[in-house]
Design a protein around this nucleic acid. Structure first.
Length: 410
DNA sequence: AATTCGGGGTC
DNA sequence: GACCCAGAATT
């Protein structure tokens, strides 16, 4: 890491810190275990010294480059550390700088992102890189408001990137710290309500030190993830147990309180068709504005309306009846005559609001040409090489690979 | 304040 | 299947 003379000693020597106003000294709620200034100082030291000893060696912790830290933080949004482990190095190798990312076609970014989920993040990351090139001459901004203004960057991510890469003093609140703060405070009500979010952010502001805020924040998250776990928190070895209201009350299991959420699922039944013509497959990119925009997909049919058959046919939705219907549809919509065969086991795909039972079929074109209407909608024949290079919907990739393996092993 | 993003992994 | 995860944007 370079030692820039413009930032001597980093934030410690700065008089006025570009952070949010200090939280009021008084506790927002007398019921809560709001720490005194002395307790805060002790707690900070304990976090830093614990982190120095127990810090995991994660790939993105080896850089101080704000760009690299930013990429890692976006990947880690609602995504667990082990999942990101392989993605971050690949991404950084393919797009080493903001410029590389900005210049790359979005298709390439999505291909690297494939399987990570929440693809909007990849599009926003790409758009933000373009904005950084335009607005900040390609240099990642170090002003909080500028970082916050980037698409896909909220209060957490802006604070995390600037504290970790620049040691600027900003508070953070995410999954791990939400739980940790709630227990330390003894917050017994649903921590996700806006009133409690406000309290927790205030608490984070109250705790964050002027110096080494990045290490402190990472230490908090590490304690939250490795010690202050959801189930069976390791209080006996927690460096903060003496300050923890939940530990003193023995209420670790009740905190954080259950979220009041009502998940209503909608069940869908779909059939994906891997339609082959010579050595190419029929696919298209999903149009802009729609979900999964920019990702490739194969033919996909909603067969939920045929639910009536479900009870009577054990092989549903891969029954001959469905396959016949699919053949008719493909001839009608695409002008192609084909023969179809049922694929392997249907895949259950749980996503945010839908539970999809995805069956699949493979087929070959017997005769006909792709209709102009279909061509206009972006459908075209893709080679195996092209399919390797483009970003596919995850279940589509899974099915394609499975079919490919089955074919080559025969 | 609730919902979406149609994610993915883990018990 | 329920729950969690280094959340953000939209309505």
């Amino acid at each position: 890491m370079k030692s820039d003379s413009k930032r001597p000693g980093q934030v410690c020597d700065q008089k006025s810190e570009p952070r949010a106003k200090a939280a009021s000294a008084a506790a927002p709620d007398a019921e809560l275990n709001w720490p005194t200034a002395a307790t805060c100082r002790q707690l900070r030291r304990q976090v830093l010294s614990w982190f120095a000893k127990h810090r995991r060696d994660l790939p993105w912790r080896r850089t101080q480059d704000p760009y690299g830290v930013w990429v890692s933080e976006v990947m880690l949004q609602q995504t667990q550390v082990p999942t990101v482990l392989d993605y971050w190095p690949r991404f950084m190798q393919r797009f080493p700088t903001v410029q590389d990312l900005a210049q790359a076609p979005i298709e390439d970014v999505l291909r690297i992102w494939e399987g990570l989920g929440y693809y909007r993040r990849a599009r926003q990351l790409h758009a933000a890189a373009t904005a950084i090139v335009e607005r900040h001459a390609g240099k990642f901004p170090t002003d909080f408001a500028d970082v916050l203004a980037l698409p896909g960057v909220g209060r957490y991510t802006a604070g995390a990137v600037l504290s970790i890469s620049q040691q600027q003093s900003w508070p953070i609140l995410e999954g791990n710290t939400l739980r940790l703060y709630s227990r330390l405070l003894g917050l017994r009500t649903d921590p996700t309500t806006s009133a409690n979010q406000k309290i927790l952010w205030q608490y984070a502001e109250h705790l964050v030190p002027q110096c080494r805020a990045g290490e402190f924040n990472q230490g908090l998250m590490e304690i939250g993830g490795q010690v202050c776990k959801v189930k069976e928190p390791r209080c006996a070895t927690c460096p903060l147990r003496t300050h923890c209201a939940a530990y003193q009350q023995g209420s670790q299991d009740q905190i954080p309180a259950e979220k009041t959420r009502k998940t209503k699922w909608e069940t869908k039944t779909e059939v994906l068709v891997l339609l082959q013509h010579r050595s190419r497959w029929l696919g298209r990119t999903i149009p802009a504005g729609q979900r999964w925009a920019g990702l490739w997909d194969f033919l996909r049919f909603d067969v939920g309306w045929l639910e009536a058959d479900k009870g009577s046919d054990p092989k549903w939705p891969q029954s001959d009846r469905i396959l016949q219907w699919l053949q008719q549809e493909i001839e009608r919509e695409f002008g192609l005559q084909c023969e179809l065969a049922a694929g392997g086991e249907p895949i259950r795909h749980g996503v945010t609001r839908f539970r999809i039972l995805l069956a699949w079929a493979t087929g070959r074109v017997i005769s006909g040409r792709l209709s102009p209407t279909a061509t206009d909608q972006g459908w075209r024949w893709l080679s195996s090489t092209e399919l390797q290079a483009t970003a596919l919907n995850v279940t589509a990739r899974k099915i394609f690979n499975q079919d490919h393996r089955a074919r080559t092993s025969r």
